[in-house]
Computed example of a mutant assay.
Amino acid sequence: MLILLAFIIVFHITSAALLFISTIDNAWWVGKDFSTDVWQICTNITNCTVINENMAEYQSIQAVQAAMILSTVFCCVAFLVFILQLFRLKQGERFVLTSIIQLLSCLCVMIAASIYTDRHEELHEAVEYLQLNVASGQYGYSFILAWIAFAFTLISGVMYLILRKRK
Rank of each mutant, 00 (worst) to 15 (best):
C48Q: 05
V64A: 12
R164C: 01
T46F: 11
C106M: 14
I101Q: 03
K90W: 06
A16P: 01
L86K: 03
F7V: 11
I8P: 00
K167F: 06
I155S: 02
R119Y: 14
Q62A: 10
S22P: 00
T49L: 12
I13C: 00
N52Y: 05
W29C: 02
A112I: 10
L161Q: 06
S105M: 03
F87C: 07
F95H: 01
I13R: 00
I61W: 04
V158E: 08
S35R: 13
H120Y: 09
G140K: 07
Q59P: 00
K90A: 15
L104Y: 02
H120T: 10
Q40V: 08
Q102A: 08
Y116V: 04
Y139I: 03
L80I: 08
C48E: 12
Y129M: 10
Q65I: 02
Y141A: 12
N44Y: 08
N26F: 02
R166F: 09
W39K: 00
T98S: 14
K165E: 14
W39Q: 00
A135V: 09
L19D: 06
L104I: 10
L4H: 12
I115T: 14
F7D: 02
N47E: 14
H12I: 07
I100A: 12
G157V: 00
Q85A: 01
Q65C: 02
E122V: 03
I3Y: 12
H120Q: 12
D25I: 03
V50W: 05
Y129T: 09
D37L: 04
